[in-house]
Design a protein around this nucleic acid. Sequence first.
DNA 1: GTCCGGTTCGCCTTTTATTCGCTACAATGT
DNA 2: ACATTGTAGCGAATAAAAGGCGAACCGGAC
Lengths: 201, 201
Amino acid sequence: MAITRRQKEVLDFLTTFTARNGYSPSYEEIASGLGLSSLATVHKHITNLHAKGLLQRAQNRSRSIDVIPQRAARKAADRLPLLGRIAAGKPVEAIQSAETISLSDIIGAREVFALEVQGDSMRDEHIISGDYVLVERSRTAREGEIVVALVDGSDATLKRFYHEGNLIRLQPSNSEMKPIYAPAGSVSIQGKVLGVLRRYN
Amino acid sequence: MAITRRQKEVLDFLTTFTARNGYSPSYEEIASGLGLSSLATVHKHITNLHAKGLLQRAQNRSRSIDVIPQRAARKAADRLPLLGRIAAGKPVEAIQSAETISLSDIIGAREVFALEVQGDSMRDEHIISGDYVLVERSRTAREGEIVVALVDGSDATLKRFYHEGNLIRLQPSNSEMKPIYAPAGSVSIQGKVLGVLRRYN
DNA sequence: GTCCGGTTCGCCTTTTATTCGCTACAATGT
DNA sequence: ACATTGTAGCGAATAAAAGGCGAACCGGAC
């Protein structure tokens, strides 16, 4: 995990202080320990470290900083517990299930790569600019699948795939855009979409 | 993966420096460590090594270089190569970059769980029934974040979070649904949404 | 209500990364 | 033999993040 020199100093101070005293320091104590005169600076450091996932804290609570041990942070949990369903129903914690979800559930043993989506051609499919589509490398596709296709070897686009007689129809999912019709020979399929991954900041 | 002698020297320097100090070197430190006088040269080396997938870095971020251990780079079934962007442009294969994407990029070291979405309350956010939302367990949220919230301890829902005077407004992202207004005391936040994962069958 | 500690805001300086134009050399392909 | 491409290097200008300040504000605990 990326960290700057100053951030490491702050982190080290927190670790040491907590180990020595059994409780975490107040911002004032951090400031004097690091030779800072403004609590705002301390707050900024803590916020940054929290954003990097190196410590936990509770908002507006005194001495609530908790440094996350590095080993625990290391073991990148790529598999998430699937706690249940949402949309009306019970509190999340009440639901207990042993299911998990991970990227491997989607990609399996296939050869998969990701592409960042730009533009709104798949908006009606709820795939938006900035999303990552997970694409299985494949030369063929089945009726109605979302594919990455090249038409005349030039433009790579994301469309739904349909046969229509001798032609292939590439259907964008945005009512403002028209489908592309092309002879099978001039359409080259790069892969088909297995999933979508989106990140909020 | 082809690597030059000089590139190995750069990589070794990075590894050693980071191991010794607990944070990665700045470009200036790299330059002096390798006897270079221009930061541009350092930058070029880093860019090349990144393109070869031997290290990760964040744009414009200080000391954000992370050397990828070679065994981890090997298996990484859960880490997908990010081949480029799509929507009109070049053929996919033509694009070369060594960026990758994985669930760990989203979850970091946080405590995260997944929920399967049912219903259409977040349709306008392009989160649809069947999607998995990746949720960081948290009691608090910031203005405008998508949260999992309990109102009066009964209903768990997915909404955008806003303060409005003494009240909290939970805003569904579906024009047909009305926002919920509730006093802060009766709203309990379960977590905030970091990302979305969707699977096509 | 009061107090203390955490949070937010606007502003500034320093540190760090990025980009540009340029030179040089070695390996490769036609 | 020559053009092309990738590596390696330089210095200068630019842009962005990190680090810092004081003051005002807010929220939880007593």
